[in-house]
């Protein structure tokens, strides 16, 4: 669920000038060479099957997993149109048309969860999104390669910690029984309460996101920075442009395509703010602020046992999310970029 966000964001990286890309051009002649793959009217189907059966067999395990754990459950969304009952199964449960949708749309908690999701996404966009850009520029300005590598290692690391771990660390440091509260209490002050104060919720979750993923987010911008032609900086400097002017007129325009693309893709992904971070802190902050669509679906179903209610919410979220992605890609194409898929 959360994987997709990170994946899509990284998948659009521009090729940096360094490493890996050299072989790309060498692939051209290969089409005509070897076994004559891809040359016009290739060999017959039988001949291709005889030639490629090993390759197909290799793809099979992953394909079976994909069919069973992605496409089969996608079809399972039909229970959104039923009053699904686990004992009767899909075949035996009564069909109720759009009744589940009506129930969903009249549930104030659904709208509250949708509102919270959009709020969190908007706050992320304003307060999280610029930070990896700034951090990348800062890291890139460190001249010593060793120091830079060390700093990169440090800031990438929290990306690999689980949300349980990140939330736990925040509680231990900033929570009501945490380190700062303990110091405040020992000096006669009231302990911190931000880890359970609904008004501080957006601040806390955004800080957690920044702590965990801002460093990792720099990778794509560092690659884009490395792709900027150094001669531009030199000529600008010779023409008398200072440090800040060079950043404004060369660095930022150089990053612009990546920034625009990531922004657009982020728009296509606003309903996926993640599950675990909010699930874990729902009790501390209350569901009023922390319930997002995914946690709503979870609590609708696995707590109350109403599978169709959860499925219908998931289906609505999925369909709206799909539309958003398609629109976002359309926008990316308009601006001359490849989205998560290319122009046909």
């Amino acid at each position: 669920m959360t994987d997709r966000t990170g994946g899509a964001a990284t998948a659009v990286a521009p090729s940096p000038g360094d490493g890996g890309d050299g072989g790309r051009t060498a692939r051209g002649p290969r089409r005509g060479s070897g076994r004559g793959r891809g040359t016009g009217r290739g060999p017959s189907f039988g001949a291709r099957l005889r030639r490629d059966w090993q390759l197909l067999l290799m793809a099979l395990p992953a394909l079976v997993l994909l069919a069973v754990f992605h496409y089969a459950p996608t079809l399972g969304n039909v229970i959104a149109f039923q009053n699904y009952n686990p004992w009767d199964g899909v075949a035996g449960s009564p069909w109720v048309g759009f009744a589940q949708f009506e129930r969903l749309f009249s549930d104030p908690r659904f709208w509250s969860a949708a509102g919270n999701t959009l709020t969190i996404a908007a706050v992320q966009l304003v307060f999280f999104f610029p930070i990896p850009i700034a951090l990348a520029i800062l890291l890139d300005s460190v001249l010593s390669p060793r120091l830079r590598l060390l700093l990169q290692s440090v800031v990438y690391m929290p990306h690999f910690f689980s949300w349980v771990l990140v939330v736990t660390l925040f509680q231990q440091i900033l929570g009501g029984a945490g380190l700062f509260s303990q110091m405040l209490r020992q000096n006669g002050y009231a302990p911190l309460e931000i880890m359970s104060d609904p008004d501080a919720f957006l601040f806390v979750v955004t800080s957690q996101m920044i702590w965990k993923d801002a460093g990792w987010g720099t990778i794509i911008f560092l690659a884009a920075l490395a792709a900027i032609n150094p001669n531009l900086y030199e000529s600008a400097a010779v023409d008398g442009a200072g440090r800040w002017r060079r950043m404004w007129h060369i660095t930022l325009p150089g990053l612009r395509p990546v920034i625009i693309l990531l922004l657009i893709l982020k728009l296509g992904d606003i309903l996926n703010v993640g599950f675990e971070q909010f699930f874990l802190q729902r009790d501390a902050f209350g569901s009023g602020v922390s319930e997002v669509l995914d946690t709503y679906i979870y609590h609708q179903t696995l707590v109350t046992g109403n599978f169709s209610a959860g499925a219908v919410a998931g289906l609505v979220k999925g369909v709206v999310g799909l539309v958003l992605i398609l629109v976002a890609n359309k926008m990316a194409h308009r601006m001359g970029e490849n989205g998560i898929y290319r122009r046909a």
Binding site: I79, G318, L322
Partner: peptide, 17 residues
């Protein structure tokens, strides 16, 4: 495989499966 970038099957149907 690429289509999986566009939609997830949904938590509940996957759970039932």
């Amino acid at each position: 495989f690429l289509l999986t970038f566009l939609f997830a099957p949904g938590m509940i149907p996957l759970y039932l499966l």
